[in-house]
């Protein structure tokens, strides 16, 4: 095989691996965005409007807050601010993911791939043991994007043909995925376990405490994650400084 052929084969392998890792995300997204489509329809959005929002935003919490703000006649400023705060966690994820990217991923490629940073895609890519290449990341975002868009379309058109109990049970798929990423890492490292317990504690505190529970969901996630990761880094900087992901 020539060098070009070898490179081509490895690119294909990377893309296919991305597709494979993206499949469970796509399934979870289909169900979650199906419920988003139902929500949009119930708020008076046309099927193409909800689908357009999903195809251009690719995020759950932000979109839900967005359609609620639009339906309530909120201002453009309120809309922009809510999107900014709820999605601010993606900035943090972008910086974190940046550390795990292969050297070949230049600025313009990043500008394209950046669109695909979601909680789940980030979670899978950032915890990958090997550096993340452009084709792997493209493969990883392909099926979730299709699942997210199609799910919204189906949900918006079919409305609530499925009983609520069925869609609710399906919505656990996404959390199952998070668990599949976190639990093995916490089992392997006590430091990760400590950070995970701390993050859960702060998150619950912000959910149940009288004043704190007024904070928006997106902001609560940022606060919990930053606090837990910072305490973890302060108490237990790994000897290799987290280099195991390089």
């Amino acid at each position: 095989m020539t060098i070009e052929q070898t490179a081509e084969t490895s690119r294909r392998r990377e893309y296919r691996e991305g597709l494979r890792h993206g499949f469970p995300i796509a399934c979870g997204y289909f169900f979650v965005s199906f419920t988003f489509g139902i929500l949009g329809a119930s708020l008076g959005f046309r099927w193409w409007e909800s689908t357009l929002i999903s195809m251009t935003n690719l995020t759950s919490a932000g979109q839900i807050a967005g359609v609620k703000t639009i339906a309530a006649g909120g201002s453009m400023f309120e809309l922009a601010l809510s999107q900014f705060i709820i999605n601010l966690r993606y900035s943090l994820m972008g910086i974190s993911l940046s550390q795990n990217m292969s050297e070949d991923v230049n600025g313009s490629k990043r500008a394209l791939l950046g669109f695909g940073i979601t909680d789940e895609i980030y979670g899978v890519a950032a915890s990958r043991k090997m550096p993340v290449t452009t084709v792997y990341f493209l493969g990883l975002m392909t099926l979730p994007y299709i699942g997210w868009s199609l799910g919204t379309l189906f949900g918006a058109i079919l409305g609530d043909v499925l009983p609520a109990t069925v869609t609710e049970v399906m919505s656990l798929a996404i959390y199952g995925m998070f668990i599949a990423i976190v639990v093995p890492a916490a089992k392997e490292s006590r430091r990760v376990l400590f950070v995970v317990i701390l993050a859960a504690a702060v998150s619950c505190l912000m959910y149940y405490m009288p004043v704190l529970k007024e904070v928006s969901v997106g902001f609560a996630i940022i606060v919990s994650a930053v606090a837990a990761a910072a305490v973890g880094a302060w108490l237990f900087p790994p000897e290799d400084g987290g280099a195991c992901r390089e």
Partner: peptide
């Protein structure tokens, strides 16, 4: 560096608990 190493696990956990308990 250590902070960024812990972030994904902290983010995923904060999104799961307690929100997932109210998903159904």
């Amino acid at each position: 560096r250590s902070f960024l190493y812990y972030v994904p696990y902290a983010v995923l956990t904060a999104m799961t608990l307690p929100a997932a308990l109210y998903a159904t």
